[in-house]
Amino acid sequence: MMNNNALIAVGVIIAIAIGIIAVFMASGDPDGLESSALVVSGQKDLTGLSPEDGDAETVGTGSYEYTSPMPDYSLGEEMGSTGGIIAIIIGIIITLLVVMGALYAIRFSKGSRS
């Protein structure tokens, strides 16, 4: 049986491997929701291919805009797939640390209460 540290190490390595494969292999087609948006706005047939220049957000009604530091899991066009790999590794590490931090914080608060 694997100990906790090995579980984290193996888990993170697998996650990073998936992330790196995703940078090169991920489909450029719009996801299920965006694709549905193209269908209902008449830019795409239900079972047809997606248009190259389709804009899923034309169906939108909201007005709020937020610009994230690493949009679309990339560091911008000029960084290419290297930027994608860096972004995904940063994301995986942040997720691991944030979740661990949150869990230890919850545990600590439990300890101090009882």
Binding site: L7, I8, G11, V12, I14, A15, I16, I18, G19, I21, A22, M25, A26, S27, G28, D29, P30, D31, G32, S35, K44, L46, T47, G48, L49, S50, Y73, I88, G91, I92, I93, T95, L96, V98, V99, M100, L103
Partner: peptide
């Protein structure tokens, strides 16, 4: 829990082609 979260983050970044001009 932390490793599952990291793995779910990685899996969610991987858009797989599902035909019909769509990924998921």
């Amino acid at each position: 829990i932390a490793v599952l979260a990291a793995g779910i983050f990685a899996l969610q970044s991987f858009n797989l082609p599902v035909s019909m001009g769509t990924s998921g």
